[in-house]
């Protein structure tokens, strides 16, 4: 293979590209070693926003199934306190559809049959508009309502609510309000199935 020939040029070009890609790959591998995000670690970190105590290291997937039948939302993970003497506390990582950007994810703390705290897990709604449906003042509308086997979930209204199962949507952010309600209702369905009826155990 002579220097200056077409074959030589092709081989050299390929070699340079392979070399660049190899160095790039090595650099990325090095950075990944330090910056890799463990999903379980991330979940536990974010769950501290809704529960003060220590939670079990791994999301509960065996024995306490996260599966539900609900078309507008889903339960992605269920966390329970590591202290086994603490009973009837469930931290649910839930997803609700219908948000401005598809879906949003929340963390819902259900303690002794009532939602006590809700926090954002992953949502990217418009700041100053949809983001108002992800604030504590909005989440509080869902808290304190007893979840019974007959409870059919929260209903979203554009007017003032008449009872505690009705929630007033944020004006101008009905999509985000709907997605939050769907996510919370997914948590309600899970609690009814897994805890009250024991169907998902």
């Amino acid at each position: 293979m002579k220097k200056g020939s077409l074959a030589y040029e092709i081989v050299m070009t390929a070699l340079v590209l392979v070399l660049i890609a190899g160095v790039a790959g090595a650099l990325l591998g090095f950075v990944h070693h330090f910056a890799a995000v463990d999903p379980n670690e991330l979940l536990l970190k974010k769950a501290s926003a809704v529960y003060d105590g220590k939670l079990k290291d791994n999301p509960v997937r065996e024995g306490l199934s996260a599966k539900i039948e609900y078309e507008n939302g889903d339960v992605l993970d269920v966390l329970v306190p590591s202290d086994e003497s603490v009973k009837d506390v469930f931290i649910l990582h839930v997803k609700g559809t219908g948000a401005y950007k598809g879906s949003l994810e929340l963390l819902v703390n259900i303690t002794k049959g009532k939602i006590v705290k809700i926090a954002k897990y992953d949502a990217n709604e418009t700041p100053g508009l949809g983001s108002k449906a992800l604030e504590d003042s909005y989440f509080r509308q869902y808290c304190g309502v007893p979840i019974t086997a007959e409870f059919s979930g929260f209903t979203l209204l554009k007017t003032a609510p008449l009872n505690e199962t009705e929630v007033r949507a944020i004006s101008g952010a009905s999509k985000s309000s709907t997605a939050v309600t769907n996510a919370v209702n997914a948590a309600v369905v899970w609690y009814q199935n897994a805890v009250l009826k024991g169907g998902a155990r």
């Binding site: 790039a24 650099l27 990325l28 950075v31 990944h32 330090f34 910056a35 890799a36 995000v37």
Partner: peptide
């Protein structure tokens, strides 16, 4: 793309 991925990974972590 290499440097963008570095930024992405660092930002996602921190």
């Amino acid at each position: 793309a290499t440097f963008v991925t570095v930024v992405q990974m660092v930002m996602q972590k921190f």
